[in-house]
Every structure is written in structure tokens, then in C-alpha cells.
Design a protein around this nucleic acid. Sequence first.
RNA 1: GGGCCCGUAGCUCAACGGUCAGAGCAGACCGCUCAUAACGGUUUGGUUGCAGGUUCGAAUCCUGCCGGGCCUACCA
Length: 571
Amino acid sequence: MARHLITSALPYINGIKHLGNLVGSQLPADLYARYQRGRGNEVLFLCATDEHGTPAELAAAKTGEAVADYCARMHGVQAELAEGFRLSFDHYGRSSSARNHQLTQHFAGKLAEAGLIEEVSERQVYSNADGRFLPDRYIEGTCPNCGYDRARGDQCENCTKQLDPTDLIDPRSAISGSTDLEVRETKHLFLKQSAMRGQLNDWIDAQTDWPILTTSIAKKWLNDGDGLQDRGITRDLDWGVPVKRGDADWPGMEGKVFYVWFDAPIEYIAAAGEWADAKGLGEADWQRWWRTDEGADDVRYTQFMGKDNVPFHTLGFPTTIMGSGEPWKLVDYIKSFNYLNYDGGQFSTSQGRGVFMDQALEVLPADYWRWWLLSHAPESGDSEFTWENFQQSVNKDLADVLGNFASRVTKFCRSKFGETLPEGGAYGPREEALVADLTARLARYEQLMDAIEVRKAAAELRGIWAAGNEYLQSAAPWSTFKEDPETAAMQVRLGLNLVRLYAVLSQPFIPDAAAKMADAMGGAGAWPEDVAAALSALAPGAPFTVPENLFRKITDEERADWQSRFAGRRG
RNA sequence: GGGCCCGUAGCUCAACGGUCAGAGCAGACCGCUCAUAACGGUUUGGUUGCAGGUUCGAAUCCUGCCGGGCCUACCA
């Protein structure tokens, strides 16, 4: 039995994520986790909220909560939405956990021992009124290049020129508007990624089957300009993991915390510890997933993320893992996604443009969203959500092709034979052909799911559903029944077994509908090893029920209504 | 400025050097009547962004141009 460690990029704690965020990491990760479990493999599927950093502090200040309280509350909100979308995490952790504090400090200590951490003094803008150092983007002023008066300290949004905060004319704090700013000297730790450049480069070069998106971004960072740059891993903030060298204090680093991009990936490991704690398991139980000296040798580790996260996962985190000199499990496959756009533009959190996770579930159940998002996952390029496309796909694929199939076959059987599988009849050439077709399709489906080709796998699954309709149409049990009820019984029995098979195969994409189909057929059973056997799993006499319609259709009125409701400014 | 990705039927996408460039949806026609007016079959539709080049052969490789998107290291 294979063992799969699967992680999704950590959603930032600040606010509710939109569908673009969902389809870029958590949803495909869940698809893969469900599939691997379905195949009978051992899976540990982890995710967590990423809770540190300036935006979290500011969001908490805005609501008047303490940062810790704000994060705890938002973690609850996000966990509930994850549940709503049926994301099957084995554990949904928090980067602010005690586990992560300890591990982050541990890694910093090991990296320091290995000579991979450097102390650097730098000059940063301090706001007296806010009582804090300001990240570049939180300083606003007039652009020296184009005169735009709301340029940010990192870049002018108007003329796109890259800036240094000290370039700005009349700089002010974007938080308070205060102009009482000064440049202060402050000391920070830098991770010497540059020292690992050769090793990282060899490692990336060896990954010939990774998505181009993943390797091209990694190579760009490795080779651009002067090559991979060292990066600061600490910040002058209150909220975060205090800078320590293992258990020991770090002289000169008092009052500073590690920066999110350093501590967030380490939470992938810490989340396994949190999982063990929550399950009442011991250290060995999570270490067998993460320590190659404790049994993780045979683990296959797959990460899912949007393209914006690729540099941290191909360079930063591997530097932490490799540089520690300890036998931690390194990622085997990085699946990255492009962005999902919304109706001709981008999803926008600030403008409330597009559909957010909470709103999506208010409008329709999870399966509708899961199916559309996964069958249109932005794998080869950015893709686009439109309500017309959503309505068409959902109505056709889910309601007509799959839902109606389950409906027609169960209702026909009930009316002609009652609510048990009828007896009699034997397979003919048509049934043999169906078995052969489904055998080939199943093999393709498995191959695509193994390769995490999400859209193609969805198309193949749809083909498997459609094969049921094709069979029924050509077998026509409603006609057969008139002269040859035994043959009709065989055809209907096969049809009902198809519903059961669909429950098993569809579960990774649409878990709720799959559960309904399984319930109606008295249970789903295991992943099919052999199609012919799977199609006779339900024997004559087995009871079944006619399920409620699996999917309803989206009307034109609803589509129009939602289209205007989500055009901007959420409310 | 630099880099990367993309541009294929009305729409969403496949094909990544080799039989007439495919599929789903939409459209048209036919069939079926078990079913959520659902299903099945047939079919219309493309000088593969443009212009050159390499090759026996190019959507696929190269060059240039046009158009769209992303990244560029202190947003995570």
C-alpha cells in the first residue's frame, strides 16, 4: 500500500478566500487525497491557516480584537468553510501553533549551525505614530517618476516603476496617514539561499515531470540577474514566532519574530505533529510521515499551490529542509496552478469582485462548485469563470448526464420490477462491449488522476457517466421489457450496478452526490479492480432506493441574479 | 526594461514533428419516450494570431511582429 503525504498551500488568515484561491490549492489537493484514499492507499492530507504577518495585525486592529483572538476566530471561519466544501483534511492546523513555534526555532538553530544564517543590519522606515516598522508597501507617497500621489513604497501602481520607500516624495504611513516617519537601523536574519544554489539547481533540473509552470518559476529565480538572493527571515513585529536558536535566546534579536515565508512552510511539518496530538498519537506516528530515518522513506509527498507560492516551495522551504542537515522528507512533486479570473477580470478581495467561499455555499451546495472548478482548473494557463459557462456545465454534466442517469434507471426499475434488483437474463455482445469500453476508460481515468491531470480526468469521468446513457439508449430496456422481461431485468441490473460504480469513481470530485448514490445502492464498496466484477457486485434480490434528484438545474433567472450580485462590492 | 506562459471551431479546451487538426458545450437534422422537456445518433463549423525560415513533412521547432496574462524577490 502506497503512502501519500499531501499538503495544500496555507490560506492566509486574513479574510475569506475566493474561488480562485480555492481552485489553486485546497480543492485539487482534496481531489488527489480522496482519490488516493479511494485507491486504498494510506494518506495524510494536511493544511493550516497561515496566521503571521502585518496584514493579520492590521486586520485585528481594525476589528478591535487582539491578534491572537482574531486569528482564532478566522481560523474557525475558514475551517468551517473548508468543511462546507468537503475538504477532507486529516488535520487543519495553525501556523501559530506551539508545534510550529518549536519547529521553526529548531530549524533556525540548525540552519545557523550549518552557517546558512547571516545577521544583516539594514535601514527600514519606522512610523512613530504607528509605533512600528512599516513594510515597503505600507508606505505611500508621491511617485518621483510620474507624480502619482498614491504610489506605494515598493512600486508605483500607476507607472509600474519599482521604488524604494526613501524615493517617495512626502511619504506617509498607509496605516495611519502619519508623516512622522524616520529611517532606523535594525538587524535581521537572512537565509543564505545563495549558498544552496547549486544544490537547488541540480534538484530542480532532476524534476523532469513537474509542471512547466513550477520549474520555470524556480529556474527564473535561480538564474535571474545575480542568481538566487538571500532573503530576510525575520521582522520587527509582535505577532509571530519569537526569534530563537533552537531553545536558546538569540542575542540581538530580542523582540523580533520570524517572517511568514520562513515559518509557514514549516507548518506543513508542524501540522503533522498537531494531527498526532489531536488524535492522541505519539511522536513516531507523525514522524513516519516526515522523517526519512523514521519510516518516511516510502512516502510520496505532493504539494499543491497557486503560481504565486512556487518560489517559496521550490527554493525557500527546500533550503530549510536540505540546509538543516537532518533527514526531513523533501517534496516529490509540486503541482502548481495558474489563476482563475472572474468574468473578464480578476477576482478582487478588496473590491469584493467575484465569488467568495462563504457566498458560493449560500448559493449552491459544494458539489456544483467542486465540479465546475475542477473540470476547469487553470492548469495550462489562466482560466475564466463566467456564469453562463457555470450554468451550462453544471446543468449538462451534473443534472443531465449523471443525475438523470441515476434517476431514469432507478425509476424504471421501480416501476417495472420493484425496489430490488431483478433476476434473470444474461450478458450479450452489447454488455461485453460496455465492459470493455469502461475498462479502457477506467484505466485512462486512473492514469490521469495519478498524473494529477485534473481537467482531463474530469473529462474522462464525464465520459464514463455518458457511457451509461449510451448503453441504456441502445439496450432500451423499456422496449425489451415488452417481449423479453428477463433480458430487460439483466439490462436494468447492469444499469443499477453502474450507479453504484459511479458512486465510487465520482467520489473524489463530487463527494455528496457520490454518497447519495452509494446510499441508494446500499453502499459503494471498494475501488474496482475489475469492471466486470464491479458491475455484478449488486446481485439479484439486493434492495435499492430511488434517490432524490442528485442535482437541480440553474435557471436563467438565477444566473442573471447572481451575475449582478457578485459583480463587485460584496454585501 | 527583463523573464515566463498563452493565442487552435461561436464558447471551454485536446493534440506538442508524421494517417482527412480532435472532444465537450452551443447550432442544425433524425431517433427514443425509461428519465430532472432528460437521453442517443448524425451533422454544420478551423488558410491552428500574422509574416518568414528549418524539414520529405510544422498547430507542433527557429526568427520577427501583433494581442492577452503573469512574475520581477518587503503582499502573503
